[in-house]
Amino acid sequence: MLWRRPGRRLLNNLSGRVSAVYILVLVIVALVGPLVISKDPSQISRSVLKPPSPSAWFGTDQLGRDQLARLVDGARVSLLVGVVAAGMAVIVGVLVGAFAGFFGGWLDIALMRVSEFFQVMPTLIVAVAIVALIGPGLFNIILVIAMLSWPQTARVTRGEVLRVKQLEYIDVARCQGRPEWRILLREVIPNAIPAVMPLIALCVAEAILQEASISFLGLGSPDTISWGLLLHDGQQNLLRAWWMSVIPGVATFITVLAFNLLGDSVSAALNPRLRLIGRVRRRVKI
């Protein structure tokens, strides 16, 4: 092909591999880190606003709390929010999309209208309002993020299901007299899943960014140390303590980047055309 160069594939492979390794390391840090780091992330001390040093690698905040301990603890929360919210969004999205695509008719119209409705709403504004409504708990934030991010998966799944259900072996299954819901669960959904795979990583990336945004606006809970909360504190001390905003910001950036690259690599490997569909409707968190 005239327009293809091996460099591109290399980039994808390389970046995919690097990001997978990074994510693995991050997960290990999040799981094991708090056991290794002896410092309590919410323990105050008299050495407030100390820049990074051998005794506190990432410095301390306005209450003298160790920023490394907080960052590691935050990794746990941010990953948890990302993975759980994305998981919920993908499950709901796949189910909704599959039902809509498979059964068609009024169900399809209704479900797609609902998903369209969720997609056109300004997400951050709605998220802020809902978090204000149901309170700032960790689970609530996960719920809000999941609630606002399932439609994308639903649309992709629906498209895929529409394609899959035309295939011959579905007709074969029908002829064997197997019930419709069984065909949907056993044949159609499993065959539509590959198309959804890349969306999972992208959803995690989105969810981490969403959580950071919500906590940054001060809507998180002070007991739930997430990177967004660290950035919120960091902004309050931006000039007095650059490390409080630079370090968690870099951590968030690299992590979201890793999930995005992973998603892209998976997407490129599975189906190069799919990315287009997936990407067009993504909106910027501004």
Partner: peptide, 20 residues
């Protein structure tokens, strides 16, 4: 409140902060 919570933990009280 966060600082007080930490101080209370020092004396063995499991203090949480609720900040709605």
């Amino acid at each position: 409140a966060e600082a007080i919570a930490s101080m209370l933990k020092d004396v063995g009280i499991d203090a949480k902060v609720s900040a709605p």
